[in-house]
């Protein structure tokens, strides 16, 4: 059985050799995670899709410069985060839109999620909205590294060791950053009376 690392290695080799199927498999393997990362920064479904699309095009174009001394996802994650930062700098982020807001926006899928979970108890909808706003503000207050660690651990479900690998930091640093992030978020939630 091929383990995860070898599987990526084979796909990368395939892509280097110009095999379209290898590229398609890499996209299908990582697009969900990539979208979640991008959404965390861009906070807009269409904007996140654009960034993910561009990130994979970059992978195709730059695969020959990938030396293989780090894991494929580590390398890809950096390209993706840089693109997210660029998109944010270019002001692609819709200021009026919030990841957790319920309202008219381009985030139809997200709104559907919220509606599904709350249509039975509409009074909870307001509470969820307030909480969401607090969380969003809290996440925005984290430092870049705290946010990255939190995203990778909490939203993407990587193990602490994997987060350390991706960010090229020590596991102890991951724990410290997570701890700090949790306490900052606690303060924001508390300040909001939640």
């Amino acid at each position: 059985m091929i383990d995860k690392k070898d599987e990526d290695g084979l796909l990368v080799e395939g892509l280097r050799a110009g095999e379209e199927s290898a590229f398609r498999l890499l996209v299908e393997k990582y697009q969900t995670r990539a979208f979640s990362v991008a959404f965390g920064y861009i906070k807009d479904v269409e904007g996140a899709k654009d960034v993910v699309q561009e990130s994979f095009i970059r992978i195709y174009e730059k695969i020959k410069s990938f030396k293989g001394d780090s894991k494929f996802y580590t390398w890809y994650y950096r390209i993706l985060v840089n693109l997210c930062m660029d998109a944010m700098r270019k002001g692609k982020r819709t200021a009026a839109f919030s990841i957790f807001m319920v309202g008219e926006s381009r985030n139809k899928e997200y709104n559907l999620n919220i509606r599904e979970s709350e249509k039975e108890e509409p009074e909870k909808k307001y509470a969820a909205k307030v909480l969401s706003k607090k969380i969003e503000n809290g996440l925005d207050q984290l430092s870049v590294r705290e946010k990255q660690v939190f995203e990778l651990k909490h939203y993407q479900g990587f193990r602490i060791r994997e987060v350390a690998d991706i960010m090229e930091i020590k596991e102890g640093t991951v724990r410290t950053l997570l701890h700090r992030a949790v306490h900052k978020l606690k303060k924001f939630l508390k300040d909001g009376g939640l």
Binding site: G40, L131, L189
Partner: peptide, 20 residues
Amino acid sequence: VLEKISIIKRPKLPGSLYPL
């Protein structure tokens, strides 16, 4: 803190982006 944050789910990618 982590449970409160987990209440809110992020949107899922609606379909494969490969054709795009």
